[in-house]
Deep mutational scan, measured.
Amino acid sequence: MKVIFLKDVKGKGKKGEIKNVPDGYARNFLFKKGLAIEATPANLKELE
């Protein structure tokens, strides 16, 4: 799953980066803790 990092996550990504991460990791950790959001076309446009 492609995500946009909202905060730095040690060993995974830095704020503003767009990366592919495992689906479970994104849903169960990154999204729940507010560390990242899904890289949807709308979210990507908002980032620019």
Rank of each mutant, 00 (worst) to 15 (best):
M1E: 02
M1L: 14
K2F: 15
K2G: 05
K2Q: 13
K2T: 14
K2H: 10
V3M: 02
V3Q: 00
V3E: 00
V3P: 00
I4D: 00
I4P: 00
I4A: 03
I4Q: 03
F5M: 04
F5H: 00
F5R: 00
F5N: 00
F5L: 07
L6K: 03
L6D: 00
L6N: 01
K7P: 00
K7M: 11
K7L: 09
K7D: 06
K7R: 12
D8V: 04
D8P: 05
D8A: 07
D8K: 05
V9Y: 04
V9M: 04
K10F: 14
K10G: 08
G11W: 08
G11N: 09
G11Y: 07
G11V: 01
G11P: 03
G11S: 06
G11L: 04
K12H: 15
K12I: 15
G13D: 02
G13R: 01
G13V: 06
G13W: 12
K14A: 10
K14N: 10
K14R: 14
K14E: 06
K14P: 01
K14Y: 12
K15W: 05
K15Y: 05
G16H: 08
E17N: 04
E17D: 11
E17W: 04
I18P: 01
I18H: 03
I18A: 04
I18E: 04
I18K: 02
K19Q: 07
K19A: 11
K19E: 03
N20E: 15
N20F: 15
V21K: 00
V21A: 03
V21L: 05
P22N: 10
P22R: 09
P22H: 09
D23V: 15
D23W: 12
D23S: 14
G24I: 13
G24S: 14
Y25V: 06
Y25D: 05
A26Y: 13
A26E: 08
A26K: 03
A26V: 07
A26T: 06
A26D: 06
R27H: 10
N28T: 07
F29I: 13
F29T: 09
F29H: 13
F29K: 07
F29P: 03
L30W: 02
L30Q: 01
L30Y: 03
F31Q: 03
F31W: 02
F31I: 13
F31V: 08
K32L: 13
K33E: 14
K33P: 02
K33A: 12
G34K: 09
G34Y: 08
G34V: 03
G34T: 02
G34I: 03
G34F: 08
G34S: 06
A36F: 00
A36V: 05
I37P: 00
I37N: 02
I37G: 02
I37W: 05
I37T: 06
I37E: 04
E38K: 10
E38S: 07
E38H: 07
E38I: 08
A39Y: 14
A39S: 04
A39V: 07
A39E: 02
T40D: 05
T40N: 09
T40V: 05
T40F: 06
P41W: 11
P41M: 12
P41R: 09
P41H: 11
A42Q: 14
A42D: 15
A42F: 07
A42S: 12
N43G: 08
N43H: 08
L44K: 06
L44W: 07
L44Q: 08
K45F: 10
K45G: 09
K45I: 12
K45S: 12
K45P: 06
E46P: 07
E46N: 13
E46S: 14
E46Y: 14
E46Q: 15
L47I: 12
L47Q: 09
L47S: 08
E48N: 12
E48G: 14
E48K: 12
E48L: 15
E48H: 14
E48P: 08
E48I: 13
E48S: 13
E48Y: 10
E48V: 12
